[in-house]
C-alpha cells in the first residue's frame, strides 16, 4: 500500500507530517491541551530514544517481533501452499473455496478468547491469532495470481518438456509472485496490528502490554512510545519487504 514512498515528492510528503507535529507542539505550548494528557512531541521522542536503549523495552520489542514473525511465517507458508493447491486441484478447490468464503470475513479477533482457552495465555494463542489474520490476504492473492497465470507461459513450459508438477513450481509460482507479494505486504501490516492488539487485550510482555500498563497508570508519554515504536517497526518491515520484492520481481514490468 501507498507505494512509491521515496519519490522526488518526498519534501511535499514530509510537510503534513511536520505539520501534524507542529500542531501537536502548538496545542501543548499554547495551553489548549495539558501536558499530562498530551505530552509535547520533543518529550515523547526523547522518551522513545531513552527507552530504546533500556533492556526492558528491548525485551518488549523482542517479544512482539517473535510473535509477529512466527505468525506471519506460518501464514505465508500455509497461504501460499493452500492458494496454489486450490488453484491447481478442483477437489481441493471445492473444499477450500466455501470454507474461505465463510472464514475470510469473520472477525478473527473474536476467536481470540477461544484461542486463549485452548492454547493458554502464552505465545501460542497470539501467534495463532496473527497467523489466522494474515493467512487470508496471502491465500487469496496467491490463489488469484495462480489462477490468472498466462496460458501461453504454461504451454511454453509444457512444450519444453516440463511435467505438470514441475510447472507448478517453475512457472506458476514465479508467475504468481507479484500477486503473492502484494498479499504478503497486506498480511505483514495486519500482523503488526494484530500482534499489538492481542498483547493489549491480554499479555504479560510485548509492546501492546507496555501501552496498557502505561494507560493504567495514566502515563501519557509511555502510551505514545509503544505506538510510535510499532509504527516504525511497521515502516521498517514494510521497507524490508519492499527490498525483497524489488529483488524477486526485478524481471517484471511495473515492479
Amino acid at each position: 500500500m501507498m507505494s512509491r514512498f521515496f519519490s522526488p515528492n518526498l519534501v511535499l510528503g514530509i510537510a503534513p507530517i511536520l505539520l501534524v507535529i507542529a500542531l501537536w507542539q502548538g496545542l501543548v505550548s499554547f495551553g489548549f491541551a495539558p501536558a499530562v494528557l498530551l505530552p509535547p512531541p520533543g518529550f515523547v521522542f526523547g522518551r522513545l530514544l531513552q527507552q530504546l536503549v533500556t533492556s526492558t523495552f528491548q525485551h518488549e520489542i523482542a517479544a512482539t517481533l517473535i510473535r509477529l514473525f512466527a505468525g506471519f511465517a506460518i501464514a505465508v507458508v500455509l497461504g501460499v501452499s493452500i492458494g496454489i493447491a486450490a488453484a491447481a486441484s478442483p477437489a481441493i478447490n471445492a473444499v477450500v473455496r466455501p470454507i474461505v468464503r465463510v472464514l475470510a470475513p469473520l472477525p478473527k479477533v473474536a476467536l481470540y478468547p477461544a484461542l486463549l482457552l485452548l492454547l493458554g495465555f502464552g505465545h501460542g494463542s497470539k501467534i495463532t491469532l496473527v497467523a489466522a489474520d494474515a493467512l487470508f490476504p496471502i491465500l487469496l492473492s496467491t490463489y488469484y495470481g495462480a489462477s490468472t497465470v498466462e496460458q501461453k507461459l504454461i504451454w511454453s513450459a509444457m512444450a519444453a518438456g516440463s511435467s505438470r508438477y514441475e510447472i507448478l513450481f517453475k512457472v506458476v509460482l514465479p508467475a504468481a509472485m507479484p500477486s503473492i507479494l502484494t498479499g504478503c505486504r497486506i498480511g505483514l501490516v495486519i500482523s503488526c496490528i494484530v500482534v499489538f492488539l492481542a498483547e493489549m487485550i491480554t499479555s504479560t510482555d510485548g509492546l501492546g502490554h507496555a501501552l496498557v500498563t502505561a494507560a493504567r497508570t495514566f502515563q501519557a508519554v509511555d502510551m505514545f512510545v509503544p505506538l510510535i515504536t510499532i509504527s516504525l517497526l511497521g515502516l521498517v518491515l514494510n521497507g524490508l519487504l519492499g527490498v525483497v520484492r524489488s529483488y524477486l520481481l526485478r524481471g517484471f514490468p511495473e515492479a
Binding site: 498466462e150 501461453k152 507461459l153 504451454w155 511454453s156 509444457m158 512444450a159 519444453a160 518438456g161 512457472v171 514465479p174 508467475a175 509472485m177 524477486l248 520481481l249 524481471g251 517484471f252 514490468p253
Partner: peptide, 17 residues
Amino acid sequence: PGPDRGPVFQEFALFPW
C-alpha cells in the same frame, strides 16, 4: 505437448522472471 513440437506465440510468452 512435447519437445518435438516447439510453439512460438504472438504474445511471446517469455518468462518475465
